[in-house]
Amino acid sequence: MKILVLIGNVPDTTTKIKFNADKTAFDASGVQWIINPWDELALTRAMELKEANAGKVESVVVANVGRAITEGTLRKALAVGADEAIRVDADPLDAFYVASQLAAVAKDYELVLAGIEAADYNSAAIGGMLAELLDRKSISAVSGIDFDGDSLKVSREIDGGSQSLKMELPLLAIVQKGIAKEPRIPAMRGIMMARKKPLNVLAPVEAETLTAYNSFEMPAPKAACKMINEEQAGDVIRLLHEEAKVL
């Protein structure tokens, strides 16, 4: 089988966020792009599954929706070990549009991994939408996944604890932190090999957008921090009670 991992292209997590003059679009000038951190963990887990189940998992394929600028991110995924990359050549207009594009790609894969959220628009939507478009089972907040014969052992976080599940393929797993220890740093050999691996560019399919980003705003600046002496630390509790009224 082949595992498909959905890869988002997002600004580096230390990026200072700026918008254009009329605040209608993100200003991407000078931004360093990275693999969305949750997707990177999904990719890491997919690589581990492939390595531990050489007979079963024949390859790991990564896919995204984006213009040519996102190829650096895909190439990095190839450098850490993905076998093949797919780029749907379109602007990722909204979650429904992106999921519709990915549905055309993902239908042939029995196991699809997606990160639970994206570090840019934080929509937490693509994985679930894709599952519904494919009419597949999905498990969200997945913190562990492994093969168990022809089935899968999946652990997920629920509100109030965690669960171990037994799931049959096909499945869409929406993963969160804990799924893999740390993302891998590509070895030079991997970087060299990435150049020779296939990166297929597909034309987008017809799809609608249901939402639009009208404008952006920055959070209001915070008032200065009230400093309290270490010896009078207890005063903070009093202030929280009397002044801030949060206790």
Binding site: A95, I116, N122, G128, M129, L133, D159, I174, L210
Partner: peptide
């Protein structure tokens, strides 16, 4: 917007052909 909500909302949105905004 908790674990279950995040899991279900996008699926429901597709089913209803609804625009989704999370959080």
């Amino acid at each position: 917007n908790n674990n279950l909500g995040k899991a279900v909302a996008p699926r429901l949105a597709v089913r209803m052909k609804a625009g989704l905004v999370s959080a």
